[in-house]
Simulated assay, not measured.
Amino acid sequence: MTEYDVPERPRPARSLWRALWLWTLLLALAALLGGGGYAGWQFWQERQATEDIVAAQDTLLRRLSRQLGDAGAEIQQLRQRQGDLAESARRSTDLVAALQGRADDADATLARINATIQGGRGRAQLLAVEQLLLIANERARLARDVPGAIEALSLAQDRLGSLAEPKLFPIREALAEERSRLEALPRIDLEAAALTLSSLIRRAPELPQRSRAPTHAAVVDGEPSRDITPEASGFWARGIGSLRQMFGAVFTVRRTDKPVDRLLPPEQERLVGQLLLLKLETARAALLTRNTATLRATIEDAAAFLNDYYRSDDPTVLGARAELDRLMTLDLNPQLPELGRSLGLLRAYLDATR
């Protein structure tokens, strides 16, 4: 070390500690400020959430208040209705009581009437049975209504059975016999027969008609006859023969077993169809009026018409013919049994017990 060298002074330790303390103070202040800002932000967020919750609860409270008001009004209306129903129930009770009194009075009146006519009840029942027997005879004889007559006889049997009178057994036996005879009659399904004829009328225009082949052409082995007689030896005869040979080479008449279409004029075909429809309509009218003779005659005429003018080998024609054959067997007016025996026995019993 020379005399010019200045010795280095050591820094005092107090300055170092002061700097450290300042830095620590600054850091603490910064941390305090940051924590306060974060706490303030958290507080602001919680306050906003609380305000939203309070607003929602306030809205809910107002809604509940309105609903409670409406419920109170409905409760008031229900109470009013309950009062009206109670009043109506009271009036109904009074009305039922009044009706019960009237019913009791009516029962008493009927009891007196029943006691008065007790002796004539059986005769009234027998008179009703007589009317039923008259109705059965009328339905069977005049209206040809066999089911209606059977129903009337059945009602008469029930009324006689309710009397439980042994002296009426012969009448009941006659009734049972007459009813069994009516039930044994063949049942005619007029509706089904009428529907069959309606179906035939609807399908009649579609049935194929038979074509008529000309009968004036002479055919030999499928070729037209062009023979010249030995007597034809003159000039005119040879000319006529030449013309025959020329036309024979141009026109050929051949035999065929298949029907040829549209050989009848359209006017005749339409006339044939109209006539068939007229016959079928007449048959349906006879069926509905229960005219067996007219029905059978008309159906027979229609079947012959089908044989003459329609193709007998066509399935639709064969089906129509089969349906007509089934309708031919219908008997619209079967012989009805005698129904007067039970009525005569009943009238004899009424005269004897008068």
Rank of each mutant, 00 (worst) to 15 (best):
G34S: 10
F247C: 05
L288N: 02
T298S: 07
I117H: 13
S199H: 03
Q48S: 04
P259D: 11
L16F: 13
A108K: 09
A140L: 02
A31Q: 12
W21D: 09
P205H: 07
R203A: 07
L306G: 08
Q80N: 10
L185S: 05
A149F: 04
V253K: 04
A297Q: 08
K258A: 11
R347A: 05
A352K: 14
L327N: 00
A86I: 10
A97F: 06
W236G: 06
R66T: 12
L277D: 01
A97D: 09
L324W: 00
V253I: 14
L330D: 00
L318Y: 06
T229K: 02
R79S: 09
V146A: 03
G34P: 02
R90H: 12
L22N: 03
L20D: 05
E165F: 13
A232K: 13
K167H: 15
A194S: 08
A352E: 14
L295M: 06
T316N: 15
A115W: 04
L350P: 02
Y349A: 14
A303G: 11
E138S: 13
L64C: 04
R226C: 06
I228T: 15
G248E: 11
L64P: 03
R121L: 14
T282P: 01
G36I: 06
T282W: 00
G161H: 10
A249I: 00
L168G: 03
E267D: 12
E3L: 14
E87D: 15
A164Y: 05
T196I: 01
W236T: 08
T353K: 05
L330R: 00
G340L: 09
L243W: 13
L134I: 11
N291M: 01
L263E: 06
A103P: 00
I171N: 01
F251S: 13
V250C: 06
V317M: 00
L85G: 06
L318F: 04
E178P: 04
S233D: 06
L64G: 10
R79D: 13
Q274N: 10
V129P: 02
T298R: 01
G69W: 05
P208S: 07
D189Q: 01
G273Y: 07
A124M: 07
P230L: 15
L99H: 05
L288H: 03
G148E: 07
T215S: 12
L350Y: 08
A348Y: 06
L78G: 09
L134Q: 05
Y38A: 15
I299M: 04
L263V: 06
A28R: 03
L22G: 12
L22W: 09
R290N: 08
S65D: 08
L332K: 07
A55K: 03
R121D: 05
V219I: 15
A124L: 11
